[in-house]
Every structure is written in structure tokens, then in C-alpha cells.
Design a protein around this nucleic acid. Structure first.
Lengths: 211, 211, 211, 211
DNA sequence: AATGAATGAGCCTTCATTCAT
DNA sequence: GATGAATGAAGGCTCATTCAT
């Protein structure tokens, strides 16, 4: 059962979240026995946790590639641009988005114990990347809290275009999430954030310089 | 039945969203007969729509106050600060957040026909406020798309602190959503956004001035 | 309420029979209050009886015309032809058939106390007509039981083409119940029955004549 | 569950038809859990279809015996007598009638997809038997439409004594459906039909012979 | 006199879980 | 070790009837 069922379960949990995913649908897709889930995993919650870990491992390649792109030596501004482009393409470019993204979206609405694991393995490393970028741009005058604030502002801008897509679509601002629009959005978020960061850095300098 | 049930239903729908809210729980809270819901509203979907409208009307005071604060004559920078402070206090200040906010959060994950109504009545006016602020700050050189982009960036920053609160809490950046932290976050978002807008405005001017 | 509701109720009972007709549908059509039915008639059964009587009175004109056609002086063979033509046109010619016919069809499957009334007022007179026709054709040698048997055979042939229409249609014998087909069927039933009756009469004579 | 439930379901569906049969009653009789029905059969419609097929198979013996009686070499007049006797005994002899008969009666009032199957498996073969009998009696001058008409007239007479039994009982013609009465009715239907067929055959001959 | 509101009982269906084999 | 069968609880919904006004 393991291989096929994990694949099917990942898709069903990604689509419906923990609460609304059903054994029936998972086992139908996996052509597996319904009782097998309880037999192998004990109950729904432990099964879900196992699936989440499976997804993280499976989509690890994407994350590792993201990490390596972040670690290549380049000016922080360029790395920020890369980050935003990769993030928005990953969030808006594919339909449906990766299972990991959809699982996390459900966890944000209705957290389960699996969220701890997802934050530790997926969000933390990404967040640290962004903090490092922000740290380099703002310079040594910036304290860690300010760095975190800015990091949240930047990744938040990316994520909100995914999460609020139903509302934004109804506002009619963007025609659709075609590649050109995604590129435009990424360019905007990168520019908006860099202008802010640079301006803040100047403020910090000025504040320090002023006697 | 009407009064009590509407109250109970609003709470249950806000907690669980349309799909996972049950007549059982609503009627238990309202001490009403389950069949009464179908009697009064026809079916679950119409009942939900009625509850959403009820919530919007009921929480209309907050929205109207928000509008009036936005329409008082003041420099756009000050109105942006007010906007961000009000938004973050509304999103993070109460636990649980207002029913309208929670209903909208569920609609973003799993839209229903009611979302159109919510966008039209709640999101659109607010979004127009933010566009007007951005428009005044950026000046006449900015086109409407850039204005919309920036408006989304700003309101997005506010909303993401609410929506991703479970994740951000696990990142350990902020101790809790006590009033001081909310104030700090609002100050950050306002500053970050204003720095970006001012810097962009300068860029627009420079671009125009430079021969 | 009386007028409109009786009309609506007749239609709904004719469509669905006593058991499956609902107050909801009746009152919806009649734009009447659901509680009015119980208020005016006590319960569903008494309401149904009242509606059946109403339908019989209302469709009395058709029955009376039928009766008068039967009582006009004419050879019994011609009256039998008329009977069969009228019956089959009434049973198959209109879509849907008259309410009285549909009510009776339901009563045959699931009799209620109202059936007594329907038999007494509708079936008995018609049956007596057919008996009189048969009696005249067979002559005085025929006893009453034989007359009744033959009468049932003839009216039975008419009725079965209505009642078993779903099955007969699936047998593919007749294309549809267009006027030509109905005419053909009536001609067949009349001829089949008259051949039988005449042949039986000859048998009776021969039987009597033979010493 | 299968065996007991099929038995119970057949009885309940036979009594009430598809629409009015309830899982509650079936499972009460079968001492089974209500959810078991959906587990084994998916939904009510598929369950019903399965029960119909089950009944047809179970009562297949009767049908096969009927077929073999029809296929034994004998003059068509004798086979018609046998047909009518078997049919009326099957339709009127048992109380309640066989489940297949009652299921078909309900299908005639409110057809479901199962009717196709019932016609194909039960009605068609029987109808072909009667057509063959009629064909042999009428001789080669008779066209297929006339044969079908007569076959319907004969089987229709049999069936109507079952279907209209509630009405006929109220007409008071026959005391009850005791064996003697059934025998009398069968004799009448057979004689009535044979007289008609023979007379029609003579007419066909005369028509041809007459210059 | 008449009706909007409410109700208990019942409908088919789906759920995660358990159990006997 | 693995699974078809079964189950209690709950899901939204409809029914004829009752009740307070």
C-alpha cells in the first residue's frame, strides 16, 4: 500500500485539508482497502502526520534547489529578487500549486500538530534566508527585530497574492495568473521591498550619523 | 428563533466555515429545533448567505467608523498610518477575531457565492481607501496598476500577520499579540510601506526630470 | 383558499397519489398557508377525500356526456364502438390524462377509503353501461355472470393500454400514442370484443337449439 | 448480510415500490445496520436494481417452468388455455402475489431504470409466447401488428383482473379470489379470446376468398 | 378565523473506526 | 498480516402536524 497510498493521500489532504479529507477518497484513488489506513497508521491524525512528512521529503528537492540558489554568492538585492521570483512562481505559477503549499495553506486555517514539523523543516530555513538577505541590505545598524519585521513584510507580500487570490481576482486588478502577470507581480514586490529596505538603511545611517 | 439563531450561526460559521459548520451545533447553541433552519431559510446555502449578510450589517458600524476615519481630511501619510493601525488592531487585537474576518478567511480557502457579496461590501470600499491614499502619495506620475500593486502590498502585509499567525508564532519572532506588539507591528508596516512609497515617488520624479 | 387550493391539490394528488403528495407542493401551487390544510380539513386523509369528491364533481360533465352518448338509442354494436373510442381517447389521448383517471390509477395500487366513493360514482355507472351493451348483444340466453365477465374483458382491454403503457412502449409495438394509433387500437379492441361477443351469442343459440 | 437483506428488501420493495420503500424498514426486517446498505450497494438506486435482479433470478424457476409448458408441442388453443390459467393463478392465486408481480406493478405506475431489465427478462419472453400462439391460430393471413394487438388483448385481460382487483371487488361481481373463481375467470378469458381469434381468422379467410 | 413559527420523526447518505476471519 | 464486513454517530433535509397568536 505504502507507495500508491501516500501519493493519493498527499493529493487528497492537499486538496481538502486534514478535516475534510476522507479515507474513502484516498483509498479509492489508491485502490486500497479502507481498513488498511487504520491498520497501518492507527488513526487519521497519525496517518496525516506521516503523509505530511512524506510530502516534505518528496518535495525536498525543490526546497534544496531553492536553498542552493539562495546560498550562491551574489549581492543581497539580486538574491532578494531571485527569492521573490521563485516564491511567486511557485505560489501562482502552477495549478494546482504544490502539495506542500496547499497543505500549509490548510494548516494556517486550522493548525494541527503537523504544523510544528512543517514550520521547522520548511518555513524556518526559508525565513532564515530572507533574514540574511535583509540583514545584509540593512547593514549592522539594524537589530534582529527590525530584520524579522522586514522579512515578514517581504515574504508576506508574496504569500498574500496566493492566499487572497480569490478576493484579488474579484477586485479585477489582474487579468489572470499568466506568466507575464506573475513576472510583473514579482517585479513589483521586489522593487517595493527593495525601495523600503534601502530607504530604511539610509534612515539608519542618518540616525547614526546625526550627532 | 431569528435573533438567537443568527447569533449562534454567525459564530459557528465563523469558526468552521460553510462546509464544516453543522446545523446540529448551531441549533444546540441557539436552543432551536434543527428543522427550523430549513423552515426559515430553505437550505444550508441560503441560510449561510443570510448569516453573512447579517454579520456584515451587524459589524457595519466598525466598517462605517473605519470609512469615516479614512475620509477625514489629513495628509495621506497620516491616513495610511491610521489605516494600518486600525486594520492590525482589528485583525490581531481581539481573540477570536471578529466574525466577519473569520468568515472571510474561510471564504479565501473555499470560496462560496457569498464571497462576491463580501468583496463588494467590505473589501472593495476598503481597497478604494487604500488606493486613494497611495494615489495621493505617489502623485500623478503613477499609473493605476502601480497604485493597485502598492495597495495590495500594504493591505497584504496587514492581512498576512493575521492569516499566517500560527506560523509566525512558531517562528518565535513576537512574544504574543499583546497591544504593544500590535502597535509595534503597525508602526513597522506603516514605516516600511511609507518608505517604499516615498522612494518610489522619488523614482518617478527622477525618471521624469532626468532628460 | 378553497377554490385555488382544490385545483392545486387535485393536480398534485393526481400526479403523486395520496401517499406521495405533499402539503408543501400543494400549498406552494395554491400560494396558500401550509397550516390551512389541517385547519380546514383536519388531516391529510380527510383533505384527500374532499379533493376526490371535488374532482368527481368537476369532471362530472365529461361523465355525464359519456352517459348521454351511451343512452342514445343505437344498436349495441355501435354503442360498444363509441364506448371503446371514448374510453381509449380519454385514457391515451390527453397528456396528462384527466385527474380522475390518474387518481383512480393510484387508488388501484394503493386503495384508500376514497376508492369506495370513486367506484360508486364513476365505475359503477360506466360498468352498467357496458353490461347493458353486452346484455343486448348476447341476448336473453346469457346469464348475469357471463355478462359481467365479458364487460370486464372489454373495459379491461381499454384500461390496460393505459395502465401498462410503460411496458407496452418498451415492447415497441406501437410508435406512440398519436391520434392514428389510438384510433387503430380502439378499432382493434372493438372488433376483437365484438367478434368474441357475436361468436359467444352463436354458441349460446346453438347450445339452446341443440336438443 | 446479503441473503437475509435481499429477502427483506425484496419484500419491502414489492410492498411499497422504489420510492416508498425505506432502508429503515428493510434493515429492521433483516436485523441489519442501516449503513450496511450503502456500504454494500452504494446507494438506493443500485440497491434496488440488485434486488430486482435477485428477484428475477429467484423467481426464475416459475418463469422457466412457464416457458417449458409453452414449448411443449400442443395445439395453440390448448397452449392459450394453459397460458391464461397459469397467468391468472399466478396473478390472483397467491396472497400477496409474487414479489416480481408486485414490483412490476409499481414500475408501471412509476417506472425506474429497472423496468427495462424487467421487460427484457420477463415480459418480452412471455409476450413472444403469446404472439406465437396467436400467430398459429390466426394463420398466415394475419400481419404482425394484428398479432401484437390480439396478444395485448389477451394478456391484458389477464393482467387487468390483477391490477384492478380492488375496483372489481367493489363491483361485487365475484365473491373472492378462491380457486374456483380463478378457474372460472381463466375459462372465461380463454373462451372469450379464442372466440375472438377464431372469428377473426374466419374473417381473414372470407376476406381473401370472397371475390 | 386564520397563519407564521416551530417541532419530532423520519428520509438517504457519509464518516472514521472496529471486528471477525 | 491484512481485509471485507459491519457499525454508531452524524450529516443536510422533508414530512404532516401542532401551537401561540
Amino acid at each position: 500500500m505504502r507507495g500508491l497510498a501516500a501519493h493519493a493521500a498527499a493529493e487528497v489532504f492537499a486538496q481538502n485539508g486534514y478535516r475534510n479529507a476522507t479515507f474513502r477518497e484516498i483509498c479509492q484513488r489508491a485502490q486500497a482497502n479502507i481498513a488498511a489506513v487504520n491498520y497501518h497508521f492507527g488513526d487519521k491524525e497519525r496517518f496525516y502526520s506521516a503523509v505530511v512528512e512524506h510530502v516534505i521529503e518528496q518535495e525536498g528537492d525543490v526546497l534544496r534547489e531553492f536553498q542552493s540558489r539562495m546560498e550562491t554568492p551574489a549581492p543581497p538585492e539580486e538574491r532578494l529578487r531571485t527569492f521573490v521570483h521563485l516564491a511567486l512562481n511557485s505560489l501562482l505559477g502552477a495549478s494546482p500549486p504544490t502539495r506542500l503549499i496547499r497543505l500549509m495553506a490548510h494548516e494556517m486555517m486550522e493548525p494541527t500538530p503537523a504544523l510544528d514539523f512543517m514550520v521547522e523543516r520548511v518555513v524556518q530555513p526559508t525565513h532564515q534566508n530572507m533574514r540574511e538577505i535583509v540583514r545584509e541590505i540593512l547593514g549592522e545598524k539594524a537589530d534582529e527585530r527590525m530584520i524579522a519585521d522586514c522579512a515578514h513584510s517581504i515574504t508576506g507580500q508574496c504569500f498574500i497574492f496566493h492566499h487572497a487570490r480569490a478576493v484579488i481576482a474579484r477586485l479585477g486588478t489582474y487579468p489572470a495568473h499568466d506568466p507575464a502577470t506573475i513576472e510583473h507581480l514579482a517585479e513589483h514586490v521586489a522593487q517595493f521591498s527593495l525601495e523600503a529596505l534601502h530607504s530604511i538603511r539610509e534612515g539608519l545611517r542618518g540616525f547614526a550619523v546625526t550627532p
